[in-house]
Nucleic acid binder design. Structure first.
Length: 426
RNA sequence: GGAGGGGUACCCAAGAGGCUGAAGGGGCUGGCUUGGAAAGCUAGUAGGGCGUUAACGCGUCGCAGGGGUUCAAAUCCCCUCCCCUCCGCCA
């Protein structure tokens, strides 16, 4: 389970380092891997030839015994190889662990065409949809709107759990539920995704496969259970792991799932950011899109997925923009990512509400997810994609703020009225 | 939580240290037969990882997963996971 293919690293070392360095870190330590890999292969060759010899003699011993011949000389002959094999295997083990650990901690290669930049300030806006909502009164942030309507309760959530949790009440609770159903219906019925409902707890192997681990263990909520289980940080984890260690048929691809899950994140390192309201919580709901595609179609599928996500905001008539993530801001497992940012009037800025990514074969390699291009042909790694469709809590924020009215009530977006059974939250 | 039973290839299933390079069925693919089909007969059917090679190949590892014993492990020992049955508890 590695991330980059060691053979690719070996054969394109300079290119690999150069591309990874665009993420803003120095990856020249990968040069060591080539030497380690060479040693690894020569150890394998030695071990295997010793084993071939041993197997041959062992077979002879069996034959001798059956025929009643004396096998003592053969036993002597095989003796010396035993220690040698053991010694070489120990060294091989060390080499393989070193290579594996290095690669597990190495992020994906950014796609060649994505913008080069140091951090999120250099992300590139691709397009805007809708006009920034304008108001003829002073806009309020969503926490004030919610307080007046008594639909979000932070104090009681802190009492029963901790800070960065929230209790939704009345039409606030219903709005969250309505959005989940609305999004699920759209993706399942109109966009052709298969609806699944996933476990909210995942194991370490799954976290490893999608790339959360080993680098970002601090972001996860670990359970005390001795099996090494974690609260799901995003449906991407159980979703992609649906097909871990499987070989899929080409004719079944692309496979596309839509899943609602609750996501849990420590938000370590975010202390003091977005502390008011529900922009950043330890627990939030999300509708997630997951795809398994052949390598030659994955970028087309990425565009479709982006469109599917955008359709949610269009249907809700919320102004947004699409941003292409630059190399310095790109997630660990991803080769290319688009963010969808929704307009938030109280911030007078666009805030992330969804993220749509192609991991190419990075997660597939770590999770051993393959497909057979043709009947009878060798299995190959496929490409995995995931995208928000969308983050539900942040959609609530966007609706409360963009649809707020002078009297403190909030209009319900037309598309949501059937799900809300009311056209206004007051 | 308690007591048992299991996991072998696409499926079922035998094997219980060396003649297993895993039997035998089913299924699948082909052939014979047929006007065509079914049935019958017959042949083929271990995938995958890794190493090596220009390639054909060769080697190595594979019987849930991981360790160990042994010259040699599906088979013996240890650990883990998963499934099933019964009891208890529970939405």
């Amino acid at each position: 389970m590695t991330m980059l293919d060691i053979r690719y690293v070996r054969e394109h070392l300079d290119e690999v380092i150069e591309r990874l360095n665009k993420r803003g870190e120095d990856f020249s330590h990968l040069r060591d891997l080539v030497e380690a890999d060479e040693k690894r292969r020569s150890h394998i060759a030695q071990i295997e030839s010793l084993k071939a010899k041993r197997n041959e003699i062992s077979k002879k011993i069996g034959a001798y015994k059956r025929e009643g011949k004396d096998s003592a000389p053969l036993l002597k002959e095989v003796e010396s190889g035993k220690a040698q094999i053991r010694e070489l295997e120990e060294k091989l083990d060390e080499l393989e662990n070193h290579i594996k650990n290095t690669l597990l901690n190495t992020p994906n290669l950014p796609h060649k065409d994505i913008p080069h930049g140091k951090d999120d300030s250099e992300n590139v806006e691709l397009r805007k949809w809708g006009e920034k909502t304008s108001f003829d009164f002073e806009v309020k942030p969503h926490w004030d709107i919610a307080a007046a309507l008594d639909i979000l309760d932070f104090d009681r959530a802190a009492k029963m759990a901790a800070s960065r949790f929230v209790v939704y009440k009345d039409l606030g609770a219903r709005l969250e539920r309505a959005l989940i159903n609305f999004m699920m219906d759209m993706h399942a019925n109109e966009h052709g995704y298969r609806e699944i409902l996933l476990p909210y707890i995942v194991n370490e192997t799954s976290m490893m496969a999608t790339g959360q681990f080993p680098k970002f263990t601090d972001d996860a909520f670990k359970l005390t259970d001795e099996r090494g289980l974690y609260l799901n940080p995003t449906a991407e984890v159980p979703g992609i792991n649906m097909h871990r260690d499987e070989i899929l048929s080409a004719e079944d691809l692309p496979i596309q799932y839509v899943a609602f899950t609750t996501a849990f994140r420590q938000e370590a390192g975010s202390a003091g950011r977005d502390t008011r309201g529900i922009i950043r919580q330890h627990q939030f709901n999300k509708v997630e899109l997951i795809k398994f595609a052949t390598p030659d179609t994955s970028y087309d599928e990425l565009e479709k997925m982006l469109e599917n996500s955008e359709n949610v905001l269009k249907a809700l008539n919320l102004p947004y923009r699409v941003v292409e993530i630059c190399s310095g801001d790109l997630g660990f497992a991803m080769a290319k990512t688009y963010d969808i940012e929704v307009y938030i009037p109280s911030y007078d800025t666009y805030r992330e509400i969804g993220s749509i990514s192609n991991a190419e074969d990075f997660q597939a390699r770590r999770g051993n997810i393959r497909y057979r291009p043709q009947k009878g042909s060798k299995p190959e790694l496929l490409h995995t994609l995931n995208g928000s469709g969308l983050a539900v809590g942040r959609t609530v924020v966007a609706i409360l703020e963009n649809y707020q009215q002078k009297d403190g009530s909030v209009k319900v977006p037309e598309a949501l009225v059937p799900y809300m059974n009311t056209d206004v939250i007051k």
